[in-house]
Computed example of a mutant assay.
Amino acid sequence: MPNEARSALVFRAGDCSAQTDLAALYATQSIARGEGSIGGAWATGMPALNDDLAHDCSIAASQACASGLSRLVVLPVIGNASLEAVLAWYL
Results as ranks from 00 to 15, higher is better:
P2F: 00
A5H: 00
R6D: 00
S7Q: 14
S7A: 11
A8P: 02
L9M: 06
L9H: 06
L9N: 09
L9Q: 03
V10H: 07
F11I: 04
R12L: 06
R12F: 05
G14A: 11
D15R: 11
S17A: 13
A18E: 12
Q19W: 06
T20G: 00
D21T: 02
L22S: 01
A23V: 02
Y26S: 05
A27E: 07
A27T: 02
Q29K: 09
S30D: 10
S30W: 08
A32I: 03
A32K: 06
R33P: 10
E35Y: 06
G36S: 15
G36K: 10
S37V: 05
G40N: 04
A41C: 02
W42L: 00
T44F: 03
G45D: 06
P47N: 15
A48M: 14
L49T: 03
D52G: 01
L53D: 01
A54V: 08
H55T: 14
H55Y: 15
H55G: 14
D56S: 04
C57V: 08
C57I: 05
S58L: 06
I59T: 11
I59V: 12
A60W: 10
S62Y: 12
Q63N: 09
Q63V: 05
Q63H: 12
Q63F: 11
A64Y: 10
A64C: 09
C65K: 11
C65E: 14
A66I: 10
G68Q: 08
S70I: 01
S70W: 02
R71P: 09
R71I: 04
V73H: 15
V74H: 01
L75S: 14
L75F: 15
L75K: 13
L75E: 15
L75R: 11
V77R: 14
I78S: 09
N80A: 13
A81W: 08
L83Y: 00
L83E: 00
A85R: 07
V86M: 01
A88H: 03
A88W: 02
A88T: 03
W89D: 11
W89L: 10
Y90H: 05
Y90M: 01
L91I: 12
